[in-house]
Computed example of a mutant assay.
Amino acid sequence: MEEAAFFVDEELFKHDRHVTIKSGKAYIFCMKNIYRGMDVDEYVFEKTNTYIRKFDKVIDVSIGDVTEPIAKKVAEAGAKAAIELSEKKSMRGYPPHDGYKFLKNAIVNYYLKKNIVITADQVFVTHGIKDDLASTLSLFDGITVSVPRVGYPAYKDICRLFGHKTKYYDKAEDADGDVVIICSPSNPTGEEWGVELLSHTIKSAINNNRIVLFDAAYEAFSDGVGSVLSIEGAKKVAIEFCSLSKTAGFTGIRCGYTLLSQENSIYGRYKRAKAIACNGVSYVTQRMAEAALTIAKDDVKNIVKYYLRSQAIISQEVGIQPTNSPYVWVKIGDGDKAFRQIIERYNVAVMPGSAFGDGSYVRASAFCDHVTAKKVGEAISAYKKIQ
């Protein structure tokens, strides 16, 4: 199979060690061949969904999808923005590829309240973390990416899609790839990286010319270090990916943001690539995101607290300690067997731990109401007792 070559302006990539310049053009081999995507296995969540769909009236807590309505003030902001687009004086076309100033400023102020200083030109509004994580990893060619051994399966799949090698790590000191991916609080375990651990990782990245990709999807659930940018030196090597999907119930709306400082060596490459390949997030969506971070912030916090209560209910029923996470990670023996039998016996669908790298666990999503949470906890507990 032939390699896929893309021709772009030499100036864009002339300082990039991953690109070969030839005859005034940059030959960017983003993929080994044009059919690489065919070599990637079916996404694990699609496999489990196929099995779950065989059953009727299932309590499905396998996927971490929100169930509580978005805040009224957020919905009203979206409705107002949509009406604006119906009027000549306020009609808007394509949004800025990196986001409107009003949302970027709201994000800056959101971080300022955490005592983290960023500027609007360090904020890039996106459709969500997974999309932007993929586009960021596409900027590299043939690197080694350190991913958590127990973690979100998309990390490995995205790396494979772009021809990168993955190297699993169990401890921070083992994360020694060209790029290191961190998720805190962790999906699925709920574990959080503290100041000491993050400081060690950032210092190591600086000393070894690494890039750290920090998945902050669940930062609103954390009462610890919710942002890697709070760590000294992090702006030099870290990129923070954030989303309103779980924070404000935006899984069906799609809006997130990436924080990247000019101190980071990848800043120029990322910014230019965004301008080339992205048409931006819709005006209506960005107005809703602005509301979630400003006038509706207390309502959003209450939704997060509600899900944390669901997490505590499931954890209590199962007999484990709650975490600052919307997931419950349960040691259960054979996770694949438990996945099948819990749905068959109790009509509750959880996710087998093998999807995340440890087949001796199952994961239950706490994105559910409190009555459902109790039923889920009871089902898992009942299954454990018969083992």
Rank of each mutant, 00 (worst) to 15 (best):
E2R: 14
F13P: 09
D16M: 00
H18P: 00
G24S: 13
A26M: 13
M31Y: 12
K32S: 13
K32T: 09
K32L: 11
N33W: 10
N33E: 14
R36Y: 02
D41S: 15
E42T: 15
T48M: 11
T50S: 10
I52T: 10
V58S: 06
D60K: 08
E68T: 09
P69F: 07
P69S: 12
P69G: 12
P69E: 14
I70K: 11
V74S: 09
V74D: 00
V74E: 09
G78F: 07
K80R: 15
A82M: 06
L85R: 07
K89R: 10
S90K: 09
G93E: 00
Y94R: 12
D98H: 06
Y100A: 03
L103Y: 05
L103F: 08
V108F: 07
N109Y: 07
Y110V: 02
N115D: 15
G128D: 09
G128S: 11
I129S: 00
F140P: 02
F140E: 06
D141G: 02
G142P: 05
I143Y: 13
V145E: 01
S146W: 07
V147A: 08
V147K: 06
R149F: 13
Y152E: 09
P153M: 07
A154N: 10
I158K: 07
I158A: 02
I158G: 08
R160N: 13
K165H: 00
K165W: 00
K165G: 05
C183V: 05
S184H: 00
P185M: 02
P185A: 02
P188F: 04
T189I: 03
G194C: 02
G194D: 10
L197R: 13
L198P: 01
S199V: 03
I202D: 00
R210K: 15
F214N: 05
D215A: 03
F221A: 09
S222T: 03
S222G: 04
I231R: 04
G233K: 05
A234T: 01
A238D: 07
I239N: 08
I239G: 04
E240I: 01
F241D: 02
T247A: 12
G249F: 01
G252Y: 14
R254G: 04
R254E: 15
L260E: 05
Q262M: 10
I266C: 08
I266D: 02
Y267P: 00
R272G: 14
N279F: 10
Q286L: 08
A291I: 00
A291W: 00
T294R: 02
I295K: 15
D299Q: 11
I303L: 01
I303E: 05
K305G: 06
Y306S: 13
L308V: 01
A312C: 06
I314K: 06
G319P: 08
I320G: 03
Q321G: 01
T323K: 14
N324E: 02
Y327A: 08
V330Y: 03
K331H: 07
K331M: 04
Q341E: 15
E344N: 13
Y346L: 10
V348P: 07
M351Y: 11
S354R: 15
F356I: 02
Y361A: 01
R363F: 09
R363I: 00
A364N: 03
S365V: 06
F367W: 13
V371W: 05
A373P: 04
Y383K: 10
I386K: 14
